[in-house]
């Protein structure tokens, strides 16, 4: 579904991405984790078509990304700058749906349904600044859901909320992505989170960035904040990802156990 091949990007003489290749199958939730400053956001922005990479190819459903694809949505880390503070939650969610050719009433219905899915049916008429950070990020997720993208990109979506909210949002993302069968690329610097949320974890190296490892996560689709994190497989995988993020080399035994 998503094929990133040999992606290269440089800012001036500074090479950020040095041949990154990532694949994601239909409906897969792929986490990309890497040390801070490793070009994760550059990667996401290239996939979204917001910047034109220096080299390499990005294919979505076999078509190269040239402009911003219309079957793609992004959830940014900084919800306060991504939601429009002059619109209510419902209007923030409904506005992009004009592109889907829906009339006013249908847009409204779709927005309400999406807000309901993220548990914010009661907050539709609130403005972003009347909500907590976690609620705002839910609105941002609802906006992406209502848009019905086939590819969802998330850039550190839980980076600016407290720990409890973070766990709730992780479970929310797991639930809705599975429900809609959306292919999702979630970028994070949190090792725990990548293992907990992902079907696969891609570990990136320091800049200039390459793929250090591509680890399948065999924890099943249904996960639990307490139980899953206690599983031996989770602990081993988290240790492995941690080692790789710090620049270690892959341990073959960990992979064999799956």
């Amino acid at each position: 579904m998503l094929e990133i091949t040999d992606l290269v990007h440089s800012y001036g003489s500074h090479r950020v991405l040095d041949g990154v290749s990532i694949r994601a199958a239909e409906g897969e939730l792929v986490c990309v984790v890497g040390p801070s400053g490793c070009g994760k956001s550059t990667l996401l922005r290239s996939v979204a078509g917001l910047i034109r990479p220096t080299g390499g190819r990005v294919l979505i459903d076999g078509r190269p990304v040239e402009r911003i694809p219309d079957n793609l949505a992004v959830v940014f880390q900084d919800y306060s700058r991504s939601l429009y503070p002059w619109m209510t939650a419902a209007n923030n969610v409904a506005l992009p749906l004009r592109r889907r050719g829906l009339d006013r009433r249908r847009r409204r219905e779709a927005a309400m349904a999406a807000l309901d899915q993220v548990g914010l049916a009661d907050a539709a008429e609130k403005y972003p600044w009347e909500m907590s950070g976690g609620m705002q990020q839910r609105v941002s997720i609802a906006r992406a859901l209502a848009y019905r993208p086939s590819l969802l990109l998330m850039d550190e979506p839980f980076g600016s909320v407290d720990a409890q909210t973070r766990e709730d949002l992780e479970d929310l993302v797991l639930r809705v992505c599975a429900h809609h069968g959306m292919t999702t690329l979630l970028i994070t610097h949190d090792i725990d989170e990548s293992v907990y949320v992902g079907d696969r974890v891609i570990v990136l190296t320091r800049s200039p960035t390459r793929v250090a490892a591509d680890l399948p996560v065999d924890l099943g689709r249904s996960r639990d904040q307490i139980a899953t994190r206690q599983l031996g497989a989770f602990v081993r995988l988290r240790a492995e990802v941690g080692r790789l993020v710090r620049g270690g080399s892959p341990t073959p035994t960990v992979l064999e156990k799956h």
Binding site: A48, L50, I68, D70, L72, A73, V74, F76, D78, R81, S82, Y84, M87, L95, P96, R98, R99, R143, Y147
Partner: peptide, 21 residues
């Protein structure tokens, strides 16, 4: 804000929408 504009691009706002909204 750059992110306001990028959000508009991601969700494919028309020129009029970008201006007025």
């Amino acid at each position: 804000d750059r992110q306001h504009l990028e959000t508009a691009r991601i969700f494919g706002f028309s020129t009029v929408q970008r201006l007025t909204r």
